[in-house]
Simulated assay, not measured.
Amino acid sequence: MQAKRFNVCVIIAVSLMLIFSTGALAATTFKLGVMGPFTGPSAKTGAEFKGSVKMAMENIDYKIGNYKIELVWIDSQSDPAKATSAYAEAVESKGVQVAMLNWHSSVAAAVMDLGFEATGWKVLSEDYFPFTQTDFYPLLSKFKKGGAAVLAGTSTSAPSISAFIKQADEIGLQSVVIADGLGWNADWYKMTGNASNHVLDMIPRLTTKAAQEWAKEIKAKFGYNPSPSASGLSYDYANFFIKLAKRTLEKHGKLDKDSIHEVVLSELNTGKLTYGKADGALIMNEYKYTAKTVPDPIIAADGYFFPVLQYMNGESNIVYPDDWKTADFSAK
């Protein structure tokens, strides 16, 4: 018997995130670079980066030992070439020793071996679009005509991904939509309305009382509702850097690019130095790296893990994994 075949479209724009780099010498002032999209199509995410990093540094009064932390904002503008130039300027002209965070990968996955053929799926189309694109009617019409059962992809540009979802709803597309990153923008429902109903996403949640209180503090201080991905992860990574810097100072008696790099190699990249709930992490249970996983953290339910959510009427419910779910998956 011939296996039934399904069509799936894979749409990739850009993706996400993290961590350390190097630069020049410093005295008692330590210049810490923070890279993010502070202008351009993902500027709202950049604003959330700034708020979270500032709050983390205010908690320690911008001091680690005898060092005063000076933040240097490195604007990627959601553009790989401009990001490279801005980073070089920060290192060569502004004295940045270490840089953390980031939102975009310069190139999305060139090849995705999803294994669909072996399970009866067929990739109908693989398409890429720029951060600034907001007209998806021709692309969506192609998917509809091709009978796509699933649309799966990601974009870090809120205007792009919200336009995609609204237009898919407008043309009556019945495909299951996996919009990885829609919830990175806390105002996703304002931007999509009920067009986001049934859409799947993978993002962290503000599940603990500490995380929820932190979100209230961010709202009161900066005037926006923080997203767990943009604000929460950047806050956790800023605090992870603080822990790394404190350990470096304890081990080497100084903060500079070489001493920090040594601790990254010997302790962070080997899983000896981690950051988790016991340290005050808000989003993930534990941020832990090993030689086998670097540059990625260990992906596990008790480590770094994004549950699958489904949106409905402005609310999100976990539908996977089963032991986390708060609702069953609902098809259109």
Rank of each mutant, 00 (worst) to 15 (best):
Ile69Trp: 13
Ala83Pro: 03
Gly46Gln: 06
Lys50Pro: 08
Gly51Phe: 04
Phe49Met: 06
Glu70Ile: 01
Leu71Arg: 06
Gly95Trp: 02
Ile69Met: 11
Ser52Val: 08
Ala90Ile: 06
Ala47Asn: 13
Asp61Pro: 05
Glu58Asp: 14
Lys54Asp: 15
Ser85Arg: 05
Leu71Cys: 06
Tyr87Glu: 08
Gly95Cys: 08
Val91Cys: 05
Val96Asp: 00
Thr84Phe: 08
Ser78Glu: 08
Ser85Ala: 14
Ile69Asn: 13
Ile60Ala: 12
Asp79Met: 02
Ile60Met: 11
Asp75Ser: 14
Glu89Val: 04
Ala81Gly: 10
Val96Ala: 13
Val72Trp: 00
Glu92Trp: 05
Gly65Val: 02
Phe49Leu: 03
Lys50Arg: 14
Ala88Cys: 11
Ala90His: 08
Val53Lys: 03
Glu48Lys: 05
Ile74Glu: 01
Ser76Val: 11
Asp75Tyr: 05
Glu58Thr: 01
Glu70Phe: 03
Ala47Val: 01
Gly65Ile: 11
Ile69Asp: 10
Asp75Leu: 10
Glu89Ala: 14
Leu71His: 05
Asp79Tyr: 00
Ser78Lys: 03
Asp75Ile: 10
Ser52Asp: 04
Lys63Ala: 12
Ser85Asn: 07
Ala81Lys: 11
Asp75Trp: 08
Trp73Ala: 08
Gly46Asp: 05
Gly95Pro: 03
Ile69Gly: 04
Lys50Val: 08
Ser78Tyr: 09
Ala90Pro: 01
Glu89Lys: 13
Asn59Cys: 01
Gly51Lys: 01
Tyr62Asn: 07
Gly46Val: 00
Ile60Pro: 07
Gln77His: 10
Asp61Glu: 15
Ala88Pro: 11
Lys50His: 13
Lys82Ser: 14
Ala90Glu: 09
Gln97Pro: 03
Glu70Ala: 06
Ala90Gly: 15
Ile74Pro: 04
Gly95Ile: 04
Gln97Asp: 13
